[in-house]
């Protein structure tokens, strides 16, 4: 999968989970910048990403995945 495709898919998941307006954001989202992205929403995001990419994350990875940049890095290793 191309880097761009991965990022687009990730952002699609994040924006839908966080109910964000598509146009207002760049390519990289950071957990700390969104009040909606709390520890509960994180669980939903992880589940959505796992379904989208058909992968499973380890707890250590789940804790690290706090920005779209980190998410790309971890997902790329699994594809």
């Amino acid at each position: 999968m191309l880097e761009k495709e991965i990022i687009d898919k990730i952002n699609k998941v994040l924006k839908s989970a966080l109910k964000l307006n598509n146009n207002t954001l760049g390519d990289y989202l950071i957990k700390d910048k969104f009040i909606e992205w709390d520890s509960l929403k994180h669980i939903t995001i992880i589940a959505d990403l796992e379904s989208e990419f058909d992968v499973l994350f380890e707890p250590e990875e789940i804790v690290e995945m706090n920005s779209s940049e980190k998410i790309v890095e971890i997902i790329r290793k699994k594809l």
Binding site: S39, I43, T44, A47, E50, S51, E58, P59, I62
Partner: peptide, 15 residues
């Protein structure tokens, strides 16, 4: 995983 990490008993994928 989600149970032991966050006490989430029902798989969030079933939302």
């Amino acid at each position: 995983r989600h149970f032991y990490m966050s006490l989430v008993p029902i798989n969030p994928k079933l939302a």
